[in-house]
């Protein structure tokens, strides 16, 4: 359907992520070196929608102090760089993904909901397995961003014909046959172009096929989180469940069935509008 060159060229047509997100997420890399709060505040001030989200969160019941409202500098200090990076990206990525996934037959809002559900699962698993939780959250949030590229090459429901013929092979193999690259690889290339830290690029690339030699704990966590999201019924297009759960990654994590099933229930509950403390978490499907 498309050559690898045509597929790669389509990446250039996709708008880049706003620099606010990129600059904040870059601060998560390398174990999260402390950027000065003034730098962070300056970055945040340049983006009204993010500044508004941050103020709303800092003054929300979860973080706020009753009877007191916080300025933007207070808010930056209270929430910290890591939370801010998470919010900035969440705000901007969910907008980008809200209409995405049409080539997979996904309904409006389904892909942004799945991105967030996976991100919540990854954050929880990361805490358990001693991986940087914010980094895992952001990587999981971006894991399916390559589906934007597939949408750009193929029209609405274009993959249905492929899925109708599919036997029990991983769906990535069909994507590679049709487009020269799969959505995980395309997502990694996009993240690279957008200047995302390498840890995130690797996790996006390996989120369906986590590498073993050497293994990467963030990728393992994002991989497991992706399966948890799928079991919660999130992001299921015509590709369905045609993705393996990598047994080696499971063994490396030591994840048990009860633990992951409980997480499936938690992720579902976390996505109900009443449960979300963060702004703009859900686009009505």
């Amino acid at each position: 359907m498309a050559t690898l060159n045509e597929t790669i060229a389509s990446l250039d047509r996709l708008p880049a992520l706003p620099s606010t997100s990129v600059r904040l997420v870059a601060m998560l890399a390398g174990g999260g070196t402390q950027a000065s709060l003034r730098d962070v505040e300056q970055i945040v001030r340049q983006d009204e929608s993010i500044a508004a989200s941050i103020l709303k969160l800092a003054n929300s019941a979860a973080y706020g102090v009753p009877g007191r409202s916080f300025s933007l500098s207070d808010a930056v200090r209270r929430l910290g760089t890591r939370t801010l990076a998470k919010i900035a990206l969440e705000t901007q990525v969910s907008g980008r993904l809200a209409n995405a996934g049409v080539s997979y037959g996904l309904r409006r809002g389904a892909l942004s909901e799945s991105a967030l559900g996976g991100a919540i699962a990854a954050e929880t698993l990361a805490r358990r397995y001693r991986v940087d939780p914010e980094l895992a959250f952001v990587a999981a949030l971006l894991r399916d961003i390559g589906k934007l590229a597939i949408d750009a090459i193929a029209g609405p429901d274009a993959l249905e014909a492929i899925a109708a013929q599919a036997d029990a092979r991983p769906f990535l193999a069909y994507e590679r046959e049709a487009f020269g690259a799969d959505h995980a690889e395309l997502g990694a290339l996009l993240c690279e172009r957008w200047g995302m830290p390498l840890e995130i690029v690797h996790a996006v690339r390996g989120h369906h096929e986590p590498p073993s030699n050497p293994a990467d704990p963030v990728t393992d966590v994002v991989h497991a989180a992706d399966c948890v999201a799928r079991w919660a019924g999130l992001g299921l297009g015509c590709d369905g469940l045609l993705y393996p759960f990598n047994a080696e990654a499971r063994l490396r994590l030591g994840a048990t069935r009860d633990e992951l099933e409980a997480l499936v229930a938690d992720v579902h509950s976390a996505l109900t509008p009443a449960a979300t403390g963060l702004p703009n978490l859900r686009n009505a499907a």
Partner: peptide
Amino acid sequence: GAEVLADDGHFRIG
């Protein structure tokens, strides 16, 4: 009640 691929019998939620 579908299943993820290559589930090695560990989860089998479907």
